[in-house]
Every structure is written in C-alpha cells, then in structure tokens.
Simulated assay, not measured.
Amino acid sequence: MSERLAVIDVHLLLVRGDEVLLSKRRGSYGDGMWHLPAGKLEAGESVVAAAVREADEEVGVRIAEADLRLVHVVHARGAGVEPRLGLFFEARRWAGEPVNREPDKCYEVAWFRRDRLPDNVIPYALAGVRGYLDGTTSGVFGW
C-alpha cells in the first residue's frame, strides 16, 4: 500500500450579497474558531457531489451541482496535520435557510461581510477565502 499524499477537502463559500457563511467549530481541531462548511472527499464520490453532500449535512441547504463554481485550490500542511488539498466552491444559489445541523461539531453558523471576517478563522480556510476574494485560482499554505 502506498502512502497517501494528501487528504482532499471540499469547502463551501455560501455567498449572500457581500456576506459569506461561517461555522464555529466545536470539540475538534480549532475549537471555537470559525471555518467554512467543509468536509473530506469520500471514496467513490466526485468533488462536486461531496460539496453538495457537505452543504446538506452541515448547514441543511440543497445545492444543485450546476450552481457550484470551483474558485480556489489550496495545498496545505501544518505541524502534525496530514497534508491537504482544499477545493473551495462558491455557491450563490441554494434551497433552504442555513442552520447548524451538526451541533456536536459546531457551536453556531453566522453570516459575515466578506470585508469584515472575524479574527479567529482557521488559517487554512482563511487562505482559501483570501484567495477567492483576491481572484487567484490556487495557493499553498504551510509549505
């Protein structure tokens, strides 16, 4: 068996006007810090299908695959953290109102102006958000 090179994560930038939805992590890495709705790619799943699944699981919104746009990619690593390839998808249309569907993993969800994000956003996610806001397609973090 070969060693895995990176975990593949999908991140959702749910955009409403000039706001983006963030979730406050509970219990695991980054407890009390803000993050985008996100999750790991599962075996046999496309990255777009993973983004649609995570949107429903974490914040209860239904997104059509055609309404997702890949806006940034981050190749990240950190001390003691397995390297990751983060795919950041923008959605401007969805069905349902975002709610916290994982209270065991998340304290709350909230909308923030894109130009006034909280200070305590998980750095890996923030790298993707900044890349999206800057209009760059990719970047590295922690290398």
Rank of each mutant, 00 (worst) to 15 (best):
E42C: 15
W111P: 00
L68R: 02
Y124S: 14
A76D: 14
V71M: 09
A91Q: 00
R53E: 08
A55L: 13
G80C: 10
L117N: 06
G139H: 03
G30I: 08
S46H: 02
D18M: 05
T136A: 06
V10N: 05
P83H: 07
D115F: 00
A125T: 13
H35T: 15
L126Y: 08
M1C: 08
R26T: 06
L68P: 04
W143Q: 14
H75T: 13
H75Q: 15
I122L: 07
R4K: 14
R93L: 01
G142K: 03
E42K: 15
D9C: 07
V129M: 14
P123Y: 10
F89S: 00
A49K: 12
R93W: 03
R92A: 12
L133R: 03
T136L: 04
V15C: 05
T137H: 07
S28D: 15
V99E: 09
V7Y: 12
I63A: 10
R69A: 14
E65P: 00
S23E: 15
A125D: 09
E19T: 10
V99W: 01
V20Y: 02
N120A: 05
V121D: 02
G39T: 10
L21M: 06
G27V: 14
A64P: 01
D9V: 05
G78F: 11
V48P: 00
D119E: 15
L68M: 12
G60P: 00
I63H: 14
E19S: 09
K24N: 01
L87I: 03
R116W: 07
P98V: 00
I63D: 14
A91V: 04
R114M: 15
T137W: 06
L70V: 04
R77L: 10
A51E: 12
C106W: 07
V59S: 01
G17H: 09
W94Y: 09
Y124H: 13
V73E: 11
P98A: 06
D56T: 11
D31K: 02
R116V: 04
G80N: 05
V81Q: 00
A38P: 05
